[in-house]
Every structure is written in C-alpha cells, then in structure tokens.
C-alpha cells in the first residue's frame, strides 16, 4: 500500500475532499472511488483516448494523471453533460448521427469535443480531426462521429447566438 494522501477538488461541480492512495490513477478514482463509471478505460497507457475527461476545461487522459493531482482542479466527466432528463447538444448530435455503436469510447470523444466546441463553435474540418485523431473508435469508422461534431457545433452555435 502506498501512502494515503489528501485530495480536494471539484468533480462535476461538487466538492470532493478525501484521502487517496498516492498511486491511484484519476481514472480509477473517478470510477471506483466516486462511482462515476461513465468514464471508461481502454488502454491505461495514454494512447486510445477513451478515458478522456476535462480538467479545468481541457481534455485530459484520466489514466495519465494521478488522483492526487486533481488537487485544486475542476474535473468534468460524461455524467456532467446532460441536465436532468435533457441531453447535451453533443449527446443529441451523437444520437441523431449514429455517432456511436458499442458506446464504450463515446464519453471520451464527447468530452474532447466539449473542450473543442466550448471554445469554438465553428471549427474547421482540420480542427475537428485534430481533436478526434487523439482517440480510437473501433466500431464506427469515424464518419458518423465527424458528422455528429458538425451537428453539435451547429446546435451549440445557434444556442449561443
């Protein structure tokens, strides 16, 4: 057992203050300590992007951060996207465009897309691909995910206008 260390952070808008095993990854902490199992883990070595979450609004591999490193940060996971029974525009767009099949990688994509679209509701194809390129999906062949991003951008752009 490693040393237990304190951590205090915000997760999906709520304060979390607890002790964690120093070696625990943030992905494991979110999933197994906080029960936020919507974040999935695909490779645990930072390549597949499935465990993407937002740390202070920026896409981050949660397998490449220690839980203790969340100290002082604002964490957002897929559980934060929908509002009650209303889906987030990105979720709606994925549904409309069939941007998912097995759904295992989808949270990672949606969080990265959230980072992109919160800063830019009119991204170019290259900007979208740069974000999507950091993650693998084994089911869709990406065509429908690209369409979902464009659809979501339109939804978020018009909502913000």
């Amino acid at each position: 057992m490693s040393a237990l260390v304190p951590v205090k952070c915000h997760v999906n808008g709520r304060v979390v203050e607890t002790m964690v095993d120093a070696r625990m990854t943030l992905a494991d902490f979110l999933r197994h300590e906080l029960g936020l199992t919507g974040t999935h883990v695909g490779c645990e070595h930072g390549v597949c992007g499935i465990c993407n979450i937002l740390v202070d609004g920026q896409t981050t591999r949660s397998c490449l951060m220690l839980a203790v490193q969340a100290e002082g940060h604002e964490i957002r996971t897929v559980e934060s996207l929908s509002d009650g029974d209303k889906l987030h525009p990105i979720q709606e767009a994925f549904m409309e465009e069939h941007g998912l099949q097995c759904g295992f990688c989808t949270a990672g994509f949606m969080m990265a897309i959230c980072d992109l679209l919160e800063n830019n509701t009119n991204p170019s194809e290259d900007e979208i691909k740069d974000v999507l390129g950091g993650q693998v999906c084994r089911c869709t062949g990406y065509n429908t995910i690209l369409r979902a991003v464009k659809n979501a951008a339109a939804k978020m752009g018009s909502a913000g206008a």
């Binding site: 930072g46 981050t60 990265a112 390129g133 950091g134 993650q135």
Partner: peptide, 9 residues
C-alpha cells in the same frame, strides 16, 4: 506532438 489531450498536459 501527439494529440491535443497530450499537449494539454
């Protein structure tokens, strides 16, 4: 270098 999430951190 890598992809956006890697460059973020």
């Amino acid at each position: 270098i890598g992809h956006a999430p890697i460059r973020n951190r």
